[in-house]
Amino acid sequence: MKLKRKILALLMAALLAVSLAGCGQTSQAPANPPAAPEAGTPTERTVTDMAGRTVTLPAEVKTVGTFGSIGVLNAFVETLSAGERLANEGSPSFVKSPTWEKYQYQFTPHIKNLKPFQGADSELLMENILAAKPDVCLTMSADLTEQLEKQGLNVVQLSWTKTEDVKECITLLGEVLNQQEVAADYLKYFDDMLAKAADLTKDIKDADKKTVVYGNVSKFSQPHVIAEWWIDKAGGISVTSEAMTKANKESLTYTLEDLLKWNPDVMFVASAAEKKEVLADARLGEITAVKNGAIYIVPRIAHVWGNRTTEQPLTIMWAMNKLYPEIVTDSQLAEDISYFYSHFFKYDFNADQLKEIMGK
């Protein structure tokens, strides 16, 4: 009897152990549980902008607002292959330009359906801005920086006063947008193109170099000092260079007498309307550029090539093609243009577009 009780007790203990083991299995975690997020993953980071300000940004910047020099800033973002992050339409002064629709809406078609962040007089449309609340606001204006910062927005201020500042801008924005590899790629491209231009023009004798005037010629104005740089890199001689150096300003106003004395071989102007005005002014009829029909409209693609833009390596090649077509042929220029926009902007121009950009 005792033996039977002992056996029964052992059987009951075994059954209880099996029962408990079964319950334990139903509460176990899956064999391959999803990986938990790493503890301490940062959600924010800081950068130092070109005004020396420390700016806190999200770990990933998904939306970008551009303020002030919208054309220049959009070109920066697009060059870094991040145009899809732009969060605003251009201001009225940009939108009314036919070239804005022609090219800007090709590169970033989504912005056509977005609201502008600035109005007709460049005033901030704060209701639109705060509704979109971009992860970062880009500007080159200390005044705009202050206004936006007061609204609790993240603002990165850029500066482009010297030629080489484009490199610092690209480097900083590569960090802001987490596009460091693209930024490094552009910097190499920039240096390679300048080296290429120097090699192409090295054998041009000073006596054979073409003289050039750039800008609003009918208004006797050279609006952007950086043109002195790209004209020189293209192997030309800017007739306004000496006066611009003396003035030490961003722009230069000269006189009809100055222009007649300089008598440039070539004119680079910003628009078809400007070219028409020059040709209609009888006082300019004896200038060599006018007599020879050497008046060329500088392209405006992401931005005006003659002004500050990441596209300026192309400006150099385009100008060289007009000054010395035997050095840079149409086919070579088309190849350079096609590569730049395909490689950085991720946009492929067709043959008709390339022909239009190059101009006559």
Rank of each mutant, 00 (worst) to 15 (best):
V156C: 11
L16W: 10
N263H: 01
E60Y: 02
I237G: 05
D143E: 12
T211R: 01
D348F: 03
A183V: 01
K112C: 08
D143L: 08
I301F: 05
K210R: 14
A302T: 15
V155H: 08
T211M: 10
I237L: 11
D281W: 00
A280F: 04
V239L: 04
G285F: 07
K133L: 00
S159A: 15
K261G: 05
G285C: 08
L279P: 01
K167M: 06
E168W: 01
N128I: 02
I231W: 02
H110S: 13
L194G: 12
V47Q: 10
D185Y: 03
R283Y: 14
A17L: 09
A17W: 04
N307D: 07
L260W: 01
R300P: 03
F345N: 08
S238W: 14
E38L: 11
V55F: 02
G235Q: 04
Y341D: 15
S122M: 14
P264K: 00
K196P: 01
L256N: 10
I226V: 15
D336V: 07
N88D: 07
A184S: 13
P33D: 15
D191T: 14
V155R: 00
P109Y: 02
W160V: 02
S338P: 01
T253V: 05
V217S: 03
T145W: 10
N321K: 05
A142Y: 03
L80K: 01
W305A: 06
K291M: 08
E60A: 05
A35G: 03
C23F: 15
A282M: 14
P134Y: 08
V298W: 01
V298Y: 02
A319W: 05
D352N: 13
H110N: 06
L3R: 12
Y189H: 06
K202A: 11
P37I: 01
M193I: 06
A294D: 09
D191L: 00
D49V: 03
I226D: 12
K261M: 08
A289H: 02
L148N: 04
R85Y: 04
T54K: 13
D265F: 03
L144Q: 12
P98E: 04
K62Q: 12
N350A: 15
P42K: 08
V182G: 05
N263F: 05
A59Q: 11
V155G: 04
V304H: 13
P299H: 07
E38I: 12
H224Y: 07
L3I: 14
Q118I: 02
T310N: 12
G90W: 09
Y105M: 09
V217W: 00
S221A: 11
Q151L: 07
V95D: 06
